[in-house]
Amino acid sequence: METLLARMVAALQAKHWMLTTAESCTGGAIAKACTDLAGSSVWFERGFVTYSNESKQEMLGVPAATLAEYGAVSEAVTAAMATGALLHSRAQVAVSVSGIAGPGGGTTTKPVGMVCFGWAAQDGKVRTATQYFDGDREAVRYQAVQYALQGVLQMLAD
């Protein structure tokens, strides 16, 4: 994780960009990983923890219709979360995450370990992905943080 963070920080600083996060199932763990680093205020702008559907709508502008049609754990919602985080911050790149960390809450179509991601950049580029992680709640969340940060690094490289 340290090497991944170091590479991401170097890429952010090379572009003079700041990062914002919009998190649901990770509960702020991405923001914590970032702000655990001394000097992160240079490249980390803010984090949103939007666990409820209402907070996704109020804080990030996720349309109620998108939540109703696709559900909170969907790429459509994480795309809207990432875009909303950019619009409600001064950052140039955003990452969002929503998933089912467990142990309960899973369904046949959205099992425990399913996590959706969104990344958005100031140039209008938006990417999404869905991953299925194994393990208990903590393991799913840890893997989600790593995957989210790798995606930020990819957005910065594009």
Rank of each mutant, 00 (worst) to 15 (best):
A120Q: 01
Y147H: 15
D136Y: 07
R141V: 14
E138C: 12
D123L: 12
F117Y: 13
R127V: 06
Q131L: 10
T130M: 08
F133N: 02
A148S: 12
Q150T: 12
A129T: 00
V145G: 06
A144I: 00
E138V: 15
Y147D: 09
A121I: 06
Q150H: 14
V140Y: 03
G118H: 07
C116H: 07
A139W: 02
F117C: 07
V126N: 10
R137Q: 10
G118V: 03
T128W: 00
F133I: 06
A148E: 01
Q150D: 14
V126P: 11
Y147S: 13
T128K: 00
A139T: 11
C116T: 07
Q143C: 10
A139P: 00
A144C: 02
Y132N: 11
Q131K: 13
L149K: 01
R127H: 09
E138A: 15
G118M: 08
A121M: 13
L149G: 00
Q143N: 11
A120W: 00
A121N: 04
V145S: 04
Q146K: 13
D134G: 10
A121Y: 03
A120K: 01
Y132V: 05
C116Y: 01
Q122F: 06
G124D: 09
D136F: 07
A144E: 01
W119V: 09
D123H: 10
Q122S: 13
E138M: 12
W119K: 05
Q146I: 10
D134P: 10
A148V: 04
D134K: 15
C116R: 02
